[in-house]
Design a protein around this nucleic acid. Structure first.
Lengths: 251, 251
DNA sequence: CGCCCTTTTGATCGCGATCAAGGTAAGTGG
DNA sequence: CCACTTACCTTGATCGCGATCAAAAGGGCG
């Protein structure tokens, strides 16, 4: 649906440049025309660096009154299943906001782990609410951020209800490709920084089945993989599979 | 998790009475001590009545800049699956807010249909934002409303990943029971105003399988149904099934 | 090289989708 | 009040897919 979490319309794209590099720029739309005050609240973000495998926060942690914005790297959001295995809620990449699910909550009901080395900006609630108070239009953008999150959860739920396994995998590959294109335009290429087990937990399958489905797609020549990155030479066919088209099993 | 969508803590319960009957009372926490001004923005809500089967809004409708709060009745939120069949997003009952998923969006990406006769309050965005501007604490409550919605979607996703069909059905019954108890305290009784097909679409199953699972639970004496309402005499056992416990198939 | 972990692939089996046949309940018109 | 219609619900029988168990094949690193 929406490319990653960008809220800015093309018409507003040039007004952004003044705050380029600031992770909050999606919310700073209608103030600070050209004066020097821009650095006041906008650039005082603290930045966190994580190595792959380190936690940003864990389930049941006290909420630290901060939101996070991913500047670089990939993160997985998970929670513990009743059976012990972890359920992946969502994979998040550059530009994504983390922590919206715990707004004004006392403790986290999800954990966040870095899949790769990460660079993450922190935004205290106080700064955010101050911004929202001063800039009416940023409140709209924040509302879109929240309903965008809800929309992505609905899309995920739709994926989980697809009866066929290969259908879910195809949808997953297409979804990541679409998100990656929001960041690097024109390049039909995305990455799988997470393990097969993570993908399986995300899609409600087993790692064996995920592996099998990827192999089938590769055998058809529709999927090309190079370690962590992949492309979809047979984009059209993969889209048909994702839509529920039947599939010949032979090579 | 949280009982329906109530945000008020027990400590605040008595301060609510001043606005009892007002659907916005969950947000009106910290102002209007005892004066007569209460009726100014609080009671000017318009009310909509729907008969069972009528739409509140449809997919691709233009967003009318309103939120809805269910005062009476049940509603299902759905969207169209790529295969043509509809995917149920959520079942909503008295006290629930409708329309949060389309905040500041141009058109609905979900439809809302009444399952029973309904009474629904409408809240224009303008009123809501005015309220949020004047009452800082209501902004917190609104944040909880939104992250509560996200939390419910995560719970739904967890249900969809449960491997076993009877596990999902058991979780569904328990979830509805918990929600119903938020409204009518102490009564271990809930309703199924939706069709089996709707339940199936919600759980990622077929109506046959849902029917079969309900029959199994009834055969064990753990589930008692009277037309639209049900109780769970074997609550403990159903909880075990929901957690993934194996199940003897005989009567 | 040997070790450990992830991934891939194979073989079997159980569960749930599918197709199909009653059964039940509410609404309609005679 | 009773046939008739039209849903929806229940139950049965079969079959394909994906979970499961298991083994082999990479891949990173001392």
């Amino acid at each position: 649906m929406s490319h990653r979490l960008r809220l800015v319309t093309p018409a507003l794209a040039d007004s952004i440049r003044r705050c380029h590099g600031c992770p909050l720029n999606v919310l700073c739309l209608d103030e600070l025309p050209e004066d020097a005050e821009r650095s006041a609240p906008c650039m005082e973000q603290r930045c966190i660096r994580l190595r792959g495998g380190e936690h940003l926060f864990r389930v049941s942690d006290a909420v630290d009154q901060h939101l996070y914005i991913i500047r670089q790297g990939d993160i997985k959001l998970y929670q513990h299943g009743s059976d012990g295995g972890q359920h992946i809620i969502e994979f998040l990449g550059p530009g994504a906001w983390v922590g919206l699910e715990s707004l004004n909550e006392h403790q986290r009901h999800a954990g966040a782990v870095a899949l790769t080395d990460c660079e993450i900006a922190t935004v205290p609630y106080t700064l955010l609410t101050a911004l929202l108070d001063r800039q009416p239009r940023s409140a709209e953008a924040f509302g879109q951020l929240l309903s965008g999150t809800i929309a992505r959860h609905q899309q995920h739920a739709a994926m989980l209800r697809s009866t066929s396994a290969i259908q879910r995998v195809a949808q997953f590959l297409l979804q990541r490709l679409e998100q990656a294109q929001g960041v690097a335009q024109g390049l039909a290429r995305a990455t799988l920084p997470m393990s097969r087990q993570d993908i399986a937990d995300y899609l409600g399958l087993t790692s064996s089945t995920v592996s099998r489905c990827l192999s089938v797609l590769r055998r058809h020549g529709w999927l090309a993989m190079a370690q962590r990155a992949y492309t979809l030479p047979g984009l059209r066919d993969v889209e048909k599979v994702a839509a529920g088209a039947p599939l010949a099993l032979d090579a």
